[in-house]
């Protein structure tokens, strides 16, 4: 993967987060959560800074990042799409919805479209099982989504749908 050079300001953000957790190795997961929230994702260079600050090995940090599906090393799209794969959504056809998103966007789970507009992920239960199957785009929740609606939803966002409608996390 191509090397990126982190801006001084980015390094400072990471170091501040680590310091807030007392540069303690035991706080690694909290540090990763907070940093991903601030930067959107956790590329290799960010993990290297975190490892140094927490006095642990990069391999350990990478191990945790790859263990939890919540963490991502790929930048999220402008409109991050999350498909709920919790039990209720799953039995009501979430898998078909997911494959339709994959087909329409030509990406796999965990990837972003080449124009950076959309990223596709799965999650487990958003607590809206009554609306199953549920899709989230940014913080907007779509309920009872049928595969036939997927094309239309994507088109809405493509056609200049303002980013206010779906604030990216």
């Amino acid at each position: 993967m191509p090397k990126i050079k982190l801006a001084e300001s980015t390094v400072k953000i990471i170091k501040d987060v680590c310091a807030r957790f007392n540069n303690s190795e035991g706080e690694l997961i909290n540090v990763l959560h907070t940093v991903q929230h601030k930067l959107g994702y956790l590329p290799a260079e960010v993990q290297e800074v975190i490892a140094k600050e927490l006095n642990t090995s990069v391999a350990k940090v990478y191990g945790v990042v790859t263990f939890y599906s919540y963490f991502s090393m790929i930048p999220k799209g402008e409109f991050p799409i999350s498909i709920c794969m919790g039990t209720a959504c799953y039995v009501r056809g979430a898998e078909q919805v997911l494959s339709e998103f994959k087909r329409q966007l030509k990406v796999e789970v965990g990837e972003s479209t080449s124009d950076g507009k959309f990223s596709l992920n799965c999650l487990r239960c958003v607590g809206a099982c009554g609306l199953a199957p549920v899709v989230m785009i940014g913080e907007k929740v779509f309920g009872r989504v049928a595969p036939t609606q997927v094309k239309q939803i994507i088109a809405e966002y493509r056609e200049g749908c303002s980013s206010e409608k779906a604030k990216s996390a």
Partner: peptide
């Protein structure tokens, strides 16, 4: 304390490997 090897990924794809 060399820190090269760590368990990465989860489930079936889990292996012990160097960072990245």
């Amino acid at each position: 304390t060399v820190g090269v090897l760590s368990a990465i990924n989860r489930g079936f794809t889990a292996v012990v490997a160097p960072a990245f």
